[in-house]
Amino acid sequence: MKYLPFELHTHTQHSDGDFIVSELIENAKKAGLAGIALTDHNTYSGYNEASDEGKKLEVLVIPGIEWTTFYGHLTVLGGSASNDWRVVSPATIKENVLSARKSGACIGVAHPTRVGYPICTGGWDDFLLKPSEYGIFTHYEVWSYLNPSVQHANLLSERKYASICEENIRLACVYGRDWHRGDSNVVYAATYLGIQGDLSIDNALDAIRNGRTYISCGLHAIFVLNDTNGVEYNVGARVRAGEYRFSGKISYFSDYYTKLNSIEYMEISLIGNGGNYTVPINKDGFFEFNLKCKEKKYLQPVVYGNVKGIYSKLLLATPYFFE
């Protein structure tokens, strides 16, 4: 299994982006991304060109759409195009989402806490679902937009995500740059997908569906949760309550990004209603510790450190859920 960086929320001139399709793919390549999801507002019309350009530059392009409704924005990745965003409403959201899921799509809430109407209609998640009702989705944009680790709106999303995790609902933790134009010299993150097998659309969607994801500003991570028999679990795994050893390695994704944004990792935590553990990461990036967790609890890997001189979260993973 390989964890590869993706940008799962992008726009082009097929909706309100400044990018022409080929520019988006070139920028993805330059950023070192293995793939993107093209999620233009309420249209698939850019996909064929994006897919062709992606093949030229070896950037995987996942077909997608951002259902840009009056009540919230949802990124729909893969699946069939027959689902209609115009029928989506708080009264029918469950059936709308399940029908997209049935067609094979991953579907999740985009920028759940961005300022909404009348500045950006649907910017805020107004579907009026209780945390216990979010199990219909596959993913949740815990971080959105630029400077994700220090943005107040993302702190609100982190809290909402925690309240969903507390309901024992596992949504893949994803980031959405909501990439519209080629802004340089900015702090952004990426969603790393744990790809089993070849790099393909199906395997990328499988990683999201199964919560094998983490989001980070410039860090690559290997997380290993071992039970007492030595069996290993991925992030997002549902495991038995009990004793575990948690270990792994953090490394910098690229020298360029690390220098540009002065990235420096420091500690790793497992946080959630299942406990609160923090250990330093050593200078070579390694860490390990033992833990014990009760049933119906979760623990989320979080890496802390500096970005542009500000101490903040640098990485969040989909939690482990203990049964």
Binding site: H14, S15, D16, D40, H41, N42, T43, Y44, S45, T68, A81, S82, D84, R86
Partner: peptide, 17 residues
């Protein structure tokens, strides 16, 4: 925004300002 359906289905939208 304006979206269009042909007799065979959804064609897309012009979602921009």
């Amino acid at each position: 925004t304006l979206s269009i359906d042909s007799p065979h289905g959804y064609l897309g939208a012009a979602h921009r300002h």
